[in-house]
Write a protein that binds this DNA or RNA. Structure first.
Lengths: 217, 217
DNA sequence: AGTAAAAATGAACATCATTTAATAAAACAT
DNA sequence: ATGTTTTATTAAATGATGTTCATTTTTACT
């Protein structure tokens, strides 16, 4: 096969992905370059283009792997919780823990839009849906959540978690930043779910409290 | 003054900012380059570096202006609402409307971390705090929100909105994407506030419902 | 008019992603 | 074993980027 016969095409592919991930984790996304990846695996830059169409493809592959790892992490996080509400907290905690542990790779998923005519984010849609599903299952198991609202509730909760991560992760190289993120997450989930469990019959109650007003349709 | 005596230093600065903003709005952030900005205002690239230290500084200036415009937009959005809860919906609506109308510039605020030793996001802290304050005022006016939780509730709500925007805006060049964002926003705010109004005395109630579990401290 | 300061330029440098012609090694055929 | 084709790999070339700097041009002042 290869000139040195040392590595097959898929081996080089794998080495390149791992080298690139190491660069990103260590020095951030801006430090990534084709030449750096190539020399890290002992090849020249041209060989990278023999394996990947371009850098965007390599980045997309890394993002795919990251999403897979995230999914595995969330499955793991779900392993020691029973009640659906506990599971939802676990999903939030697992997501923020992952984002805090891999801030650069986590940011890359959302911030790198390929400039090709490739359908930008659509590529991850399947992997994203798989993540959504984890939340959807828990919400369906939650009597407090009316069936027809599960779809939007899933998106609302994930969006909330995404926002918490976006506002806290990777800004400072702090240790406390994850704790703050976790606190925000639990607060948001807690109150949202409480509201979800009451809003079906509390519009009158709230008005009697004198302040709450229905959300404009 | 200037060679052609036509523009003062601050005039060139202003022209450059506007030209750069036009490029970003029209072609996206990746299309921005020093040479393109320079030629758009009828100067050469060197002159840009006479006014800005580097491109990062120009980007930071644009981000500052964007945050100012966003603040003005939110003040405007607050003008026709009375009850604090209405105002919170208005803040969400205003934020998403702005993000949908200026997706590239909105994304730039959060996605462009300068690689200088400049304290990345800290520069916007003041302008950010001003935005937070708008929410804080409404939450304080909301009897449903206990005083000591206003701080975290403010961050939770803004994070939620940020997440909604992040998950919806700029992905597709669609018209409906803002409507979906608005729907998600209203849903999230509505249920969160409902929960905020009840969670102070409902932990027992929820347990009696048989599903809800207190948020782990 | 002559000089110093300021403003503006354009060329140069280093780096980047990407392409391509040339080369080396392996696989296969005869 | 030898010649041919296929594949893997390289090094150089291209064009664009941010940034710097010596040089030129214009203005302001003496």
């Amino acid at each position: 096969m290869g000139r040195r016969g040392e590595h097959s095409k898929s081996e080089i592919e794998c080495m390149a992905l791992e080298a690139a991930e190491a660069i990103i984790e260590g020095e951030g996304f801006d430090a990534l370059s084709a030449r750096k990846v190539a020399s890290a695996i002992g090849y020249t830059v041209g060989s990278l283009y023999f394996v990947f169409r371009n850098l965007d493809e390599l980045i997309q592959r890394i993002n795919g792997r990251t999403l897979d790892q995230l999914y595995a992490g969330l499955i793991e996080a779900l392993s020691d919780c029973r009640h659906p509400q506990q599971c939802i907290y676990a999903l939030g905690g697992g997501y923020l823990a992952f984002a805090a542990r891999h801030p650069h790779r986590w940011r890359m998923i959302f911030e790198q839009q390929p400039r090709d005519d490739n359908l930008s984010i659509e590529i991850y849609q399947e992997k994203m849906d798989r993540l959504y599903e984890l939340m959807e299952i828990q919400l369906k198991a939650l009597a407090a959540c009316p069936e027809e609202e599960v779809f939007i509730a899933t998106r609302a909760l994930w969006s909330g978690l995404q926002g918490v991560a976006s506002m806290t992760i990777g800004r400072k190289p702090d240790r406390e930043e994850e704790q703050w993120a976790q606190k925000l997450s639990r607060h948001l989930i807690g109150h949202y779910l409480a509201g979800l469990g009451t809003t079906q019959f509390n519009s009158r109650v709230n008005q009697s409290v004198g302040r709450l007003i229905d959300c404009p349709k």
